[in-house]
Amino acid sequence: MRFWIVVLRHTCRNMLHTWKSQGMTLFTVSLSVLIFSFFYLVYVNALHVGERLGDDLRLVVYLDEEPAPPLQEEYRHKILKFDQVDRIEFIGREQAYKRFERILGENSDVLTGVPTDFLPASIEVYPVRTLDSLSRIKRFSDYLQTLPGVLKVQYGKEWIERFYAFIQLMRVIILLSGSLLIMTTTFMVAHTIRLTLFARQQELELLRLVGATDNYIRMPFLLEGALQGGIGACCGLGALLLLYNWITLQFAGPAAIPLPAFAFFQWPVIAAIIGLATLLCVAGSFSAIRRFLHF
C-alpha cells in the first residue's frame, strides 16, 4: 500500500513538473482516440445498416430448363460448395407465373392468353447476411453464372457494390486512424516520458544509489503512461459522445431527414478503447524507460 502511495506521489510530481508536455500529450491522445473512435462508430453503424439491407438480398439464378429433383439436388450441392447460404428456393415456371400474377394484382388480366410457362424457372439464393457474404456476392454471382443451364444471374448489384466500396473505404480509414492512434500514443507518450527522465536524471541516479528497487524507479513512469492513455481516451470518447449527441439533436424531429438507427458504443466497446489506449501508452512509456534506465 505504501509502495503505491509513494508511486502515486512521484507520478503526480513528475506530471506537474512537465505539465506543458503532459497537456500536449493528453491532447494528442484524445484527438487520436476521437478520430479512431469516430470512424469506428461510423463503421459499426454501417455494418448494422448493411445487415438490415441484406434482409432483402437474394440472387436470382434464371435457368433455361426447369430442373428435375435430382438436378435440383446437384444445383444445391454446387451452390453450397461455394458458400454458406441462408436458404435456396427453386421456383418452377408455373410458380413464377403465379407470383407474377399476384404482383400484377388488378392488372393481372394482361396475362390473359399468355402461356403459364413463359417465365423461366429460377433458383433464389439467399446468402447469409454478413458483411463477408456481401463482399463475396459478386464472386458468388460469377460462380453461379458458370453453372450448367444458367441463363442469367441477378442481384441488387449497384447498391451492394457501392455499399461494399463504402465499407472497404471505412476499413481502410479505420486501419489508418488505428495506426495513427498507435503511433501518436506510443511515440508521444514515449517522448514525454523521456523528457521527464531527462529532467530527473540526477534524481534517478541518486535513487539507485540509496537503494531504490527497479520497480520503485520505473513504476511512476508506467503509471504516468497509463494515466495519459486512460485520461486521453476518456476525453476523446467524451468528445465523441458530445459530437454524437449534437448530430442526433440536429437530425431529430418529425421534419428532419430520417437517419438510419445510429447508436453509440456499448460499454464493453468503450472499455476496450480505453483499455487499448492505456495499454499503448504504457507500452510507449515502457519503451522509453527501458532504453533510458537500461532495465
Partner: peptide, 10 residues
C-alpha cells in the same frame, strides 16, 4: 528524506 522514502518509511 529520499533515502528513507525508498525503504517506505512512514
Amino acid at each position: 528524506a529520499i533515502a528513507m522514502e525508498v525503504v517506505y518509511r512512514p
